[in-house]
Computed example of a mutant assay.
Amino acid sequence: MTRDAAVHELLSGALDGSDVVLEEVTVTPAGRRRVVKVVVDRALDATGDVTEQVESLSLDEIADATRTVSDLLDESDVLGEQPYTLEVTSPGVSRPLTAPRHFQRNVGRLVTLTLRDAAPVTGRITRAGSEDLTVAIPAVKKVPARDETLSYAVIDRAEVQVEFSRKDDSDITAPDDADASVDKEN
């Protein structure tokens, strides 16, 4: 088992029952120390279709997750004796959407979908389920606006588009890339 996988296994159980879920763990050498980057996101309560926008993690929630992760790593010997820097962060808008839960957390946001055997589509996610999603595609040239339901299987790549202002709903913003870092000397 790789060190990343061992740390991921250790941390995933510790965050169960909290409002955050572990997305990714990477351990990278950085001179005499290592950087342990832990990506967390909001846990979804919903099963099935999500049609309402999911709130991004707050800095307080990231800080709580950082303390939990830090305490667990301090108690464990999974990283050995070498010092490390811990970074706990949320995924941010640059992360490609690869799993149904990623689409569910981004309901209400503008996305560009690269489809298998079809032209790319840009639209707003209005519904995301476990097997497919619905995207509201705006009118372009002579093609009227429409809602299109797509299976995740036909999507090769999906990315959230950054919007600095939105004509129809100015209080919805792009997800934060909250970040909290802690230096640890073991």
Score class of each variant (00 low, 15 high):
Gln82Thr: 15
Pro83His: 10
Pro83Cys: 11
Pro83Tyr: 07
Tyr84Pro: 03
Tyr84Leu: 09
Tyr84Arg: 13
Thr85Ala: 15
Thr85Ser: 14
Thr85Ile: 14
Thr85Asp: 15
Leu86Asn: 09
Leu86Thr: 12
Leu86Cys: 13
Glu87Gly: 03
Glu87Lys: 01
Glu87Pro: 03
Glu87Arg: 04
Glu87Ile: 09
Val88Ala: 08
Thr89Gly: 08
Ser90Ile: 06
Ser90Pro: 08
Ser90His: 12
Ser90Cys: 08
Pro91Gly: 11
Gly92Trp: 11
Gly92Glu: 02
Val93Leu: 13
Ser94Met: 08
Arg95Ile: 03
Arg95Pro: 00
Pro96Cys: 02
Pro96Met: 05
Pro96Thr: 08
Pro96Ile: 02
Leu97Tyr: 01
Thr98Met: 09
Thr98Asn: 08
Ala99Ile: 00
Ala99Val: 09
Ala99Arg: 10
Ala99Ser: 04
Ala99Glu: 14
Ala99Cys: 00
Pro100Ile: 04
Pro100Trp: 04
Pro100Thr: 00
Pro100Leu: 00
Arg101Phe: 00
Arg101Gln: 07
Arg101Ser: 14
Arg101Glu: 04
Arg101Gly: 03
His102Arg: 09
His102Ser: 00
His102Pro: 00
His102Met: 05
Phe103Val: 01
Phe103Lys: 02
Gln104Asp: 05
Gln104Glu: 10
Gln104Gly: 05
Arg105Ser: 08
Arg105His: 06
Arg105Asn: 06
Arg105Tyr: 03
Asn106Trp: 00
Val107Lys: 02
Val107Glu: 04
Val107Met: 06
Gly108Thr: 01
Gly108Trp: 00
Arg109Val: 01
Leu110Thr: 13
Leu110His: 13
Val111Lys: 05
Val111Gly: 04
Thr112Val: 15
Thr112Asp: 12
Thr112Ile: 14
Thr112Pro: 04
Thr112Arg: 15
Leu113His: 03
Leu113Trp: 02
Leu113Thr: 05
Thr114Ile: 07
Thr114Val: 12
Thr114Arg: 12
Arg116Phe: 13
Arg116Asp: 12
Arg116Lys: 14
Asp117Pro: 10
Asp117Cys: 04
Asp117Lys: 15
Ala118Thr: 13
Ala119Lys: 14
Ala119Ile: 05
Pro120Glu: 02
Pro120Arg: 14
Pro120Leu: 12
Thr122Asn: 11
Gly123Leu: 13
Gly123Trp: 06
Arg124Gly: 01
Arg124Ser: 11
Arg124Trp: 07
Ile125Lys: 03
Ile125Val: 14
Ile125Met: 03
Thr126Arg: 11
Thr126Met: 05
Thr126Tyr: 07
Arg127Asp: 00
Arg127Ile: 02
